[in-house]
Amino acid sequence: MAEPEAGQGRQMEGRARPVRLPFASTVFSQALMAASGAGLALFVLLHLLGNAAAYLGRAAFLAYARHLHGLGPLLPAMELCLLLLAATHVVTGTMLTLHNLQSRPLPYRVKAIRAASLSSRLMPLSGLVILLFLAVHVPAFRRPAGPSAELVRITLSRPGMATFYLLSLAALTSHLSHGLWSLFQTLGIVAPRYDQPLRRAAVIVSLLAGGVFMLLPLLALVWPDFLR
């Protein structure tokens, strides 16, 4: 038999204290998540195309990177946009997660799941992993002076680093597979007829993206001459 436990009625006291509300409302905060998430996802897909150049060999990779650096003042402007999007997403996501954690102070002793996917329930966790990843990845590979294929090869051929990359990319895949569908629902852009196809497309796109990203550290790990 279960141990006696504190009463759920204690939640009355919880009611008396104001619940911390993210921005204007939960619905508005969700919309911020969806809009910033959509922007970030767009960047991720562009980034993916750039990385795909590496599979064409060192010359193609460097050509892509030089092209990027040839954008002039456009590049820092894009970086600033990304930083703002990411900051909005992380701050709002953290506040929403804290808000949601307060909404059921006493968890169920027995809880079953009917429809929610694993990736939807892991959103805060996969987001946190992506944040950690960015904290390592961006300082390591951001090169205002110009691109370096050696840097990429040397970094990714270290087994610990490659594993970290693969785990983080798995988190990104999971985050996108729910997020790419969820954002449409949050922004109210839905037609029931296209709901199932959209859900499937979100999973397929995120698996494809995750797979293409993951190939890079995998190749660097097993093929010493990669990008040489």
């Binding site: 509300l21 969700q30 949601n100 939807s120």
Partner: peptide, 22 residues
């Protein structure tokens, strides 16, 4: 109605779809 729901301490919708199924 949305701000009343927030005031009562209900959580934000994460589109888990458990509500629809239940």
């Amino acid at each position: 109605m949305v701000s009343a729901a927030d005031r009562e301490g209900f959580g934000a919708c994460g589109n888990h779809r458990e509500c629809e199924a239940a």
